[in-house]
């Protein structure tokens, strides 16, 4: 049990560091557009065990978001997106619930629920996170087109890197 908790904390810290030390520095210039941001840190919140209390999950997201925002110098922007992701996770899980329900001890990962299910779940969560994040970043819906473009491009790249991470570590 303690082992598990340490494992999750370690994953949160690791993904945070991975995000701010490596993926923050990545730039994919696409002409004059700067549409591509690779965000893999939501994976930490997305793959926490299903049985974790929802309020607790939201609080974890808040703390983790603040940590990332400190590195990004954008207090509140990543936090609000990650809190939103944590909040919406239960609804998405309900939506994708398999016929027999979830195993009590399962986490929403490839390891427990299979590749097909996991990709669907991941895609929904990452897309929601990104669209919320870019809305917060631009902070006005005047630039809805820009928000959508950024979301689409960043979605593709973030998915690629997150899946790569999954294959490398295959976390439970």
């Amino acid at each position: 049990m303690t082992n598990d908790i340490l494992k999750y904390i370690g994953r949160i810290v690791f993904l945070t560091l991975l995000q701010v030390l490596i993926f923050k520095q990545l730039h994919f210039p696409l002409g004059t557009f700067n549409y591509i941001h690779v965000l893999i840190y939501p994976l930490a919140i997305i793959t926490l065990p299903i049985r974790i209390p929802r309020n607790f999950l939201i609080l974890i997201a808040f703390v983790m978001g603040m940590a990332i925002d400190l590195f990004y110098n954008s207090i509140g922007v990543h936090t609000s997106a990650l809190v939103f992701t944590a909040f919406i996770r239960a609804h998405v899980l309900n939506l994708l619930e398999p016929r027999g329900g979830y195993n009590v001890n399962a986490s929403p990962t490839r390891y427990f629920l299979g590749m097909n299910w996991f990709i669907r779940y991941l895609a929904i969560m990452v897309a929601l996170h990104l669209i919320f994040y870019f809305s917060m970043e631009v902070f006005t819906f005047v630039y809805i087109q820009e928000i959508l473009l950024k979301t689409i491009f960043s979605f593709i790249f973030s998915m690629v890197f997150i899946l790569l991470y999954q294959f490398l570590f295959n976390p439970k």
Binding site: N55, G76, T79, F84, A86, M136
Partner: peptide, 25 residues
């Protein structure tokens, strides 16, 4: 609905922080 209230509370806090500490926003 505690999860929703917590979510709303934290989002409001984030909004406040965003407006307070980020120049462009």
């Amino acid at each position: 609905y505690s999860a929703f209230f917590l979510f709303a509370l934290l989002e409001l806090l984030c909004f406040y922080l965003i407006v307070q500490y980020n120049d462009s926003q």
